[in-house]
């Protein structure tokens, strides 16, 4: 058996790949559900019902998808340029922390809401950028591979958050719980649906996805970033400034992850704690791959993950299957997606 590269992967196959991958992942996770003694079809039915079957479930699903779209974009933008940013989790936390810190400045808290929101969003994005520019700097200056440094910085970032919310930024009114001072009302994102947690962050996330798509497919920078990823040597020969392109990519990528943290604080939680993120940063990597690094596809992939995560919670309560099954399914879909993409690019010959 050998593999033969297809000259022109068909567009249909490429579009079908994520669906095939998700189906395969659901099959695999179905076996695990069956082992646990439940009917997989019933479980998946309950997951769909939990996430889409009610107004509350649907709004929760969209609330959950909001940070996932942004962390997915963060990974997609970086991976396209072969910048291995695995530090989305840490950048998310830095963005969240920056918002809380900004909110503590009286001058900002007293600004009119639109302005306070804008400034806080920018602060969050910049904080995320900074945490990615550090490892990128190490790569450009010392040749240190950014995979491991971004991974390690995730742990440093969460510890730094813990340090701040138990120290200078601790909320004295939180009965001793380690959490930050809440953000001022002027920096809270408006709600999209009455009596739910769904907030305007969703709109920001979708706008960002479209903006990133436009930048990647319609601007000179987008082409340079792609060329840097496909073949850095050729790109450099063609006059692409590699270092500068990577720095802009890092700003975009870290900025998206930081923005995700900022929006989660300003839209949902209202304060920062060390359990703010159920690994949104790592999920973003899966979402980016499921979307085949396409910014618009990221929206769809984030919705799939959000359905799994939110639905699994209510399924878990009904059937007694651990809700970790959602994490298993989503992680498995990353592996099956890799194989699916391979099958669109190669054909198998005897």
């Amino acid at each position: 058996m050998r593999f033969e590269r297809r000259d022109h992967p068909s567009r249909g196959l490429t579009l079908l790949a994520p669906l095939g991958a998700i189906l395969a992942a659901l099959l695999g996770a179905g076996v695990l559900i069956a082992i646990a003694g439940a009917n997989p079809l019933e479980a998946y039915g309950l997951i769909l019902k939990g996430a889409l079957g009610s107004r509350l479930g649907f709004s929760e699903m969209l609330t959950r998808a909001t940070p996932l779209i942004l962390t997915g974009l963060a990974a997609a933008v970086a991976f396209r340029a072969r910048l291995w940013n695995i530090g989305g989790e840490g950048q998310f936390y830095m963005g969240a922390l920056a918002v809380a810190a900004f909110g503590m400045i009286p001058a900002i808290a007293s600004l009119p809401a639109p302005l306070a929101i804008l400034l806080c969003l920018i602060a969050g994005a910049v904080a995320g950028m900074v945490l990615l520019l550090l490892p990128l700097g190490l790569r450009l200056k010392f040749g240190v591979d950014e995979v491991v440094t971004t991974l390690l910085l995730n742990f440093v970032a969460v510890l730094f958050v813990s340090l701040m919310i138990e120290g200078a930024m601790k909320d004295p009114l939180a009965f001793g719980w380690p959490q930050s001072v809440p953000v001022p009302d002027s920096a809270v994102l408006p709600k999209l649906m009455e009596r739910t947690r769904l907030h305007a962050g969703l709109v920001i996330a979708v706008v960002m996805a479209v903006a990133v798509w436009w930048i990647q497919s319609r601007t000179v920078f987008g082409m340079r970033a792609r060329a840097t990823g496909l073949n850095p040597r050729a790109a450099s020969f063609a006059g692409v400034p590699l270092g500068r392109t990577l720095i802009v990519v890092a700003c975009l990528s870290g900025g998206m992850a930081g923005l995700a943290g900022a929006i989660e604080v300003m839209g949902v939680k209202g304060y920062v704690s060390t359990d703010l993120s159920p690994s949104y940063g790592y999920s973003g990597i899966i979402i980016a791959m499921l979307a085949n690094l396409n910014p618009l596809g990221v929206i769809a992939a984030a919705l799939f993950s959000a359905v799994m995560f939110v639905g699994a919670d209510s399924m878990s309560r009904a059937l007694g299957i651990p809700s970790y099954i959602a994490d298993v399914t989503v992680a498995l879909s990353l592996l099956t997606m890799l194989v699916a993409i391979f099958l669109t690019q190669y054909r198998i010959r005897k």
């Binding site: 990597i285 791959m289 994490d327 992680a331 990353l334």
Partner: peptide, 10 residues
């Protein structure tokens, strides 16, 4: 890169 991270998450 991606396979390894996928295995870790899975």
């Amino acid at each position: 890169h991606v396979t390894g991270l996928g295995i870790t998450l899975f």
